[in-house]
């Protein structure tokens, strides 16, 4: 591990006020993200997995500065990205960029691809005129499109091509971090593989660090260095992908892995999950996944406990004492 991580999410919480159910009741809040702490090291791919609504996309938006955190800090190389001392929207654009889930909604239908990409270069005074055109052409080639696609409009592309354009847009400003918000979930399986290969190739070539948001463990397994499993706004298990997949410990992680369709298991009519790592005796996992937690209620006391090298799992506090 390096001295200072590239990106550090420190105790991040995002709460949304819910509309009042009645005039006299106090306003309730939805705890979309509750005390999440994560780190991303240089050149690493950190995956955040969980079911929809668990707060993984909100975490991504907070990293991007598109969602102001209620509490918590986000640090880039030790410098704050939110709150006092935060860089301007323009400066921050050079640090992190995002690839969005829906390739159809992520491109402005009225602007040609070339114009969209060149506008970014112009805004940041990176290149003008023919130099800008060259850089756009180079970027389109890099993501597997052809330079003459620049004059086309988004509706002229297929889903996979649009996602390539989305990646080109995210890379145009040469950011250090790419936040990938379910970049594959809207694509066909055959195209998913192409995009994942492209992403891995780009990561290696451009020395990028990825935060990959996904609900699909089979995708995450191939690309990530570390995995954080989120459940109802909190990280319930975190660790290197090997140790998480080899010894999935939190019941929710086990359930997630169990739900991935596995051809061999289906054919042999039995399914085996790898064993869980041992946890301190008498400890209870938190939250209790046998019933649905109330996202409005404050979380019960719990903490992430180290159960292996860099492998942590959330346990209820009272069970440990």
């Amino acid at each position: 591990m390096t001295a200072s991580p590239l990106l550090e999410i420190r105790d991040l919480s995002v709460h949304f006020p819910l509309p009042r159910t009645s005039m006299f009741q106090p306003r309730e809040t939805l705890r979309a993200v509750d005390h999440v702490s994560l780190t991303l090291n240089e050149g690493e791919c950190l995956s955040i997995v969980g079911e929809s609504g668990c707060g993984k996309s909100t975490t991504a938006l907070a990293v991007m500065g598109l969602q102001e955190p209620t509490v918590g800090r986000i640090l880039y190389r030790g410098k704050p990205l939110n709150g006092p001392g935060a860089p301007s929207r323009k400066d921050r654009a050079r640090i992190a960029q995002m690839v969005f889930q829906d390739p159809f909604a992520s491109l402005n239908p009225r602007i040609s691809i070339g114009r969209m990409l060149m506008a970014q270069l112009a805004l940041h005074d990176l290149a003008k005129g023919s130099e800008a055109r060259d850089r756009v052409a180079e970027m389109l080639t890099r993501v597997g499109l052809s330079p003459d696609h620049a004059s086309r409009f988004p509706h002229e592309f297929s889903g996979g091509q649009r996602q390539r354009i989305g990646i080109a847009r995210a890379l145009m400003l040469d950011p250090r971090i790419l936040v990938l918000d379910e970049p594959l979930s809207a694509l066909d399986v055959s195209i998913q593989a192409q995009i994942i290969n492209l992403l891995m190739e780009l990561q290696e070539r451009l020395k990028l660090s990825y935060i990959m948001i996904s609900h699909d463990l089979s995708v995450v397994e191939h690309v990530s260095d570390r995995v954080a499993v989120m459940y109802f706004g909190r990280v319930v298990e975190e660790g290197g992908w090997k140790s998480v997949f080899a010894t999935p410990t939190h019941p929710y992680t086990r359930r997630l892995i169990d739900s991935v369709p596995d051809m061999d298991a289906v054919l042999s009519d039995r399914r085996q999950l790898p064993p869980a790592a041992p946890v301190p005796s008498g400890a209870r996992f938190a939250p209790d996944i046998t019933h649905r937690p109330d996202p409005r209620a404050p979380a019960d006391a719990s903490g992430l406990v180290e159960i292996g090298a860099g492998h942590r799992v959330r346990l209820a506090m009272q069970g440990m004492t």
């Binding site: 500065g65 598109l66 301007s88 323009k90 970014q120 805004l123 995210a170």
Partner: peptide, 22 residues
């Protein structure tokens, strides 16, 4: 809330620019 507007925001474009061009 469309992602192309979010993308323009994260690319650093100002609010007035986004209203005008996006």
């Amino acid at each position: 809330s469309q992602s192309f507007v979010l993308a323009a925001k994260s690319a650093g474009f100002g609010d007035w620019n986004i209203m005008r061009t996006q």
